[in-house]
């Protein structure tokens, strides 16, 4: 199939960007979205043009590198997948696709579709450590963790930090990401000890990075490739209030 692409081009963080019209010819429905872009880039390189810059790494939906908005939807139209796992069979011959980078003040554009998401790293860093002794791996049954808690922690820990939540939110809020990182440690006994300082510091960093505030529209959870639930945000809100009152 053949597709018409409108791709965002931008030289650097401070330069003015624009949409470039491109064509993706003879695209196989079995290709992933990124493979389709690879083919388009090969054509551009052959012609002596500059290829489209985009982030990618594992291409199996677990690293959180790939990040682009396809026709207004972060990671494209399919539910619960990253754009690397989106396949071209989801589109029809002759479709027009508008491809844009994540747009948020906290995620400055590095080039074309690549954004600097180190704000997320700084939020995680602000969370600090958990009280686990170094040395050999502890005996597995020395700290009992109920199955329900382990599952809840795991569900939140599946967040790959791709930033689709920020991209989808009308306020560019990082609440779903931050809440997932707060609550996956909170659910486990090892993470309980530093719970209050962690929630205060991570939320503090989130605000410092100039993300917007959560207005509970639910757009973040709807586009999350790992389907992190809104209840995570409620939990973080509750933890934050308690910590703010008790720690101040």
């Amino acid at each position: 199939m053949n597709l018409k692409l409108k791709v965002w081009k931008q030289e650097g963080p401070d330069t003015k960007g624009y949409f470039k019209n491109l064509e993706a010819k003879e695209v196989s429905p079995d290709m992933s979205f990124l493979e389709m872009l690879d083919v388009v880039n090969q054509d551009l390189i052959k012609k002596g043009d500059e290829p489209i810059a985009f982030d990618h790494d594992c291409r199996e939906g677990i690293c959180g590198s790939c990040s682009m908005v396809v026709n207004g939807d972060p990671h494209g139209p399919e539910k619960a997948v990253t754009v690397c796992q989106l396949h071209m069979r989801k589109f029809k011959d002759g479709d027009s696709l508008v491809i844009e980078p994540w747009r948020a003040k906290a995620f400055p554009i590095v080039k074309d579709l690549i954004t600097d998401r180190s704000a997320f790293d700084r939020i995680i860093q602000a969370g600090g450590y958990i009280s686990v002794n170094t040395g050999n791996a502890p005996e597995a049954n020395s700290i009992p963790v109920p199955k329900v808690k382990a599952d809840a922690a795991f569900q939140d820990a599946t967040c790959i930090g791709c930033g689709a939540c920020v991209a989808a939110c009308k306020n560019a809020s990082a609440m779903l990401f931050t809440a997932a990182k707060i609550s996956h440690l909170e659910a486990l006994p090892q993470g309980k000890v530093e719970s209050q300082t962690r929630v205060l510091n991570m939320i503090g960093q989130m605000d410092k990075e100039k993300f917007g505030a959560c207005t509970n529209t639910g757009a973040c959870s709807a586009v999350c490739p790992k389907e992190i639930s809104l209840k995570t945000i409620a939990k973080a809100n509750s933890l934050f209030r308690k910590a703010a009152i008790q720690k101040s």
Binding site: N71, E100, R103, N171, G212, A222
Partner: peptide, 15 residues
Amino acid sequence: ARPKGYAVSPKKKAK
């Protein structure tokens, strides 16, 4: 927090 918006508004996943 979002100085520049998107050219296309979300369609399918917009909940």
